[in-house]
Write a protein that binds this DNA or RNA. Structure first.
Length: 469
RNA sequence: GGUCCCAUCGUCUAGCGGUCUAGGAUACCGGCCUCUCACGCCGGAGACACGGGUUCGAUUCCCGUUGGGACUGCCA
């Protein structure tokens, strides 16, 4: 097995969107496969007909694509592979490793209760185990599991794990409705697809001995197991919808960059010394199961936000421009001039934590009319500034070249003459031009807005202030 | 309840017996820079759950306690 090509998989069940935890499992499998030049398979586990949906499948595929986690094979759908599971089931039946069980769910429920009442384990009591029953309308097929001894495996992240077989019971392999159960389908798929490494959430640790028993009953070699700790919500319970934004697509829609999400996910549970930032290539190069931690972690949304801000700061302006445009359009802006968007992006890169924030912060560049933030209006657009503003308007009217450099000169000369601080005039002007008290640098704003727009907005502010007197 | 897993700053984590008066990141608090907001820089506060061993020496190894999580389905 050691010299065999590595094969990993991501097997979501399409019962909902892809959440952070699932995405991390997918990422680890993907990284491990890429690192070892192996194969990464996508498999949709839709044996639960009632809960599976096509929308969920599509959302999962879209999430993986957005993250850039490409698969080499699949997506396979378990619902289309029943003949294979059936074939393996027959093998087990033929070899006496599995048997038909005629107990009804109600009977089982009853006996489970009784066992609990007596303080015994609520497991299947093995009633039909040696009855030699055949198929029947509501029969299920169970694995004839070993009842003594131990089932052990060496987990690649947790180390040796062992279970007493007395703890386990004869699990159902085939349901009375004619469908395979999860355990059978998983094991048969993993065998037939040639899986070498099973990297999954540690909520599966307890399932592992059952699955190992199926491998053994089938006489198949075991894969390596690596159980990654769960991701918890802030209340330390398993991450779920209750914890707010947990879906990958939600982060996309909030204006996160896929690299930032990937980076954050990788660092949740895995580490490489003190390094915090990794490019995809670096992740592939440096990822290893040995450095995956054993303890569960809480998803740190603040840190992701900061990482996102860093990636935005460092991203190529052209790329940011293309990705921010949908966020501007979402705000009703049409026919955007890409060159102008790029210039706006250039000024907002270092002050935006998300693309959504960037879009919000750049609205004033594109709107015909801006509105003043109430507080900013009250604080800076006061009558006492009228004089200075009129004077600077005059100078700007006379300024031919509206470049940052020349504008800066105009202002420096102006404050020198007037013996005032730049802030004195800069803040009121900022509000006049952007509507806000915080914005990119005044001169870059003016350059991008252009002379015409700048003059227009200053004049508008002047009438606005005049009305207050 | 039973089984299994886990336990370093609020959070993510480094640490694989002495290098630890425990390092980084984030968030928080000061300061500097400055036309605002950011960025950047400097500084601050903040953790080895507890109790036994093993050892010359434990954050690191073993056991127990406590705490947390997962599983306990004809769901995956």
């Amino acid at each position: 097995m050691d010299n065999k090509k590595v094969v990993t998989r991501f097997p979501p069940s399409p019962t909902g969107y892809l959440h952070i935890g699932g995405a991390r499992t997918a990422l680890f499998n993907w990284l491990f496969a890429r690192k070892h030049k192996g194969k990464f398979i996508l498999r949709i586990e839709d044996t639960d007909q009632a809960r599976s949906s096509e929308e969920a499948t599509n959302a999962i595929l879209e999430s993986l694509r957005w993250l850039g986690l490409d698969w080499d094979e699949g997506p396979y759908f378990q619902s289309r592979r029943y003949h294979i599971y059936r074939e393996y089931l027959e093998k087990l039946l033929a070899s006496g490793k599995a048997y038909y069980c005629h107990c009804t769910p109600q009977e089982l429920e009853e006996r489970r209760k009784q066992a609990m009442a007596k303080g015994l384990k609520p497991k299947y009591d093995g009633k039909c185990r040696n009855l030699g029953l055949g198929p029947a309308p509501h029969a299920v097929v169970r694995l004839k599991a070993p009842q003594t001894g131990k089932t052990s495996f060496n987990d690649l992240v947790k180390g040796p794990i062992s279970f007493n077989n007395e703890e386990l019971d004869d699990l159902v392999l085939w349901r009375s409705d004619g469908n395979p159960t999860y355990h059978l389908a998983v094991v048969v798929d993993d065998i037939t697809m040639g899986l070498t490494h099973i990297i999954r959430g540690d909520d599966h640790v307890n399932n592992t001995p059952r699955q190992i028993m199926i491998y053994q009953a089938l006489g198949e070699p075991l894969p390596y197991y690596a159980h990654v700790p769960m991701i918890l919500g802030p209340d330390r319970t398993r991450l779920s919808k209750r914890h707010g934004a947990t879906s990958v697509l939600a982060y996309r829609d909030m204006g996160y960059l896929p690299q930032a999400v990937l980076n954050a996910l990788a660092r949740l549970g895995w580490s490489y010394g003190d390094q915090e930032k990794f490019s995809i290539d670096e992740l592939i190069e440096k990822f290893s199961l040995e450095h995956v931690g054993k303890s569960p972690g809480i998803f740190n949304a603040e840190k992701l936000l900061d990482l996102n801000a860093q990636y935005i700061r460092e991203s190529d302006t052209g790329y940011l421009t293309r990705t921010v445009i949908p966020f501007l359009e979402k705000r009703g802006l049409k026919n955007l001039d890409e060159t102008k968007v790029a210039r706006a992006v250039e000024t907002l890169k270092i002050r935006s934590k998300t693309l959504d924030e960037m879009a919000e912060g750049s609205l004033f560049y594109f709107q015909d009319e801006i509105s003043y933030e109430e507080k900013a209006d009250r604080k800076f657009l006061k009558p006492n500034i009228l004089g200075l503003m009129e004077e600077i308007l005059e100078r700007l009217e006379k300024t031919e070249v509206f470049s940052q450099k020349s504008l800066e000169k105009v202002f420096l000369d102006f404050i020198e003459e007037k013996q005032i601080k730049l802030g004195k005039i800069a803040q009121p002007l900022r509000v006049a031009l952007t509507g806000k008290s915080a914005s990119p640098g005044l001169f870059e704003v003016m350059e991008i807005l252009g002379k015409e727009k700048v003059l227009e907005r200053i004049r508008k502010a002047l009438t606005h202030i005049a009305r207050k007197t």
